[in-house]
Amino acid sequence: MEADTVLKAENIKKLIGNYEILKGINFSVKKGEFVSIVGASGSGKSTLLYILGLLDTPTEGKIFLENREVDFSQEKKLAALRNRKFGFIFQFHYLIPEFTALENVMIPMLKVGVDLKRAKEKAEYLLERLGLKDKILRKPYQLSGGEQQRVAIARALANDPILLLADEPTGNLDSVNTQKVMEIFQELNSEGTTIVMVTHERELTRMTHRVVEIKDGEIVKETTPA
């Protein structure tokens, strides 16, 4: 195994009932990569991403995180790994409606035990970077869809994850906001953040290093955009 592999999936299968959603996926991400996963609806993209992010358990197969095998039987350890190693971004922002933008970004840091003052400073810094400087005290409903998604990105970055996992992050956004989010991803990636993004918008894959195509639970093609 190469030293700069952040995450590696080995022969991942996922069965629900008799239905095999994933049929033996082999996949790895190197440090600094920006990978996109594409495929038709129902091909198993989200399922794969959940397993890569340790949110779901594979029926068969192994996940190596920084070259160490993940033990799916230890819930507490999985939670700690999710907290420290991953940042999640979904199609829907899933911001907590009662909390301000600032507080939403602070949440992952509070779990690690960062004190309130430091968490606040860092959340402010992240939101500022994402162009939300004057909106940090707004509640989610006081923000536009694009702004909400940027808050969610800031939250995903809160604990300096080694890997950012995004499931259709622009699925709910207009073209202007989609463009903005993609620019943010590119900027983060150029600064060293490793990203795996699921999308069904082909043109977005042009901004990534590698495109993995899934069909019926199998990887059918891997390409490198020009």
Partner: peptide
């Protein structure tokens, strides 16, 4: 009502006991 918020908390590493 807060099912989704709880799900996201768990995704972000909050445990059952939290």
């Amino acid at each position: 009502e807060k099912k989704r918020d709880i799900a996201i908390l768990k995704a972000m590493g909050y445990e059952k006991r939290d």
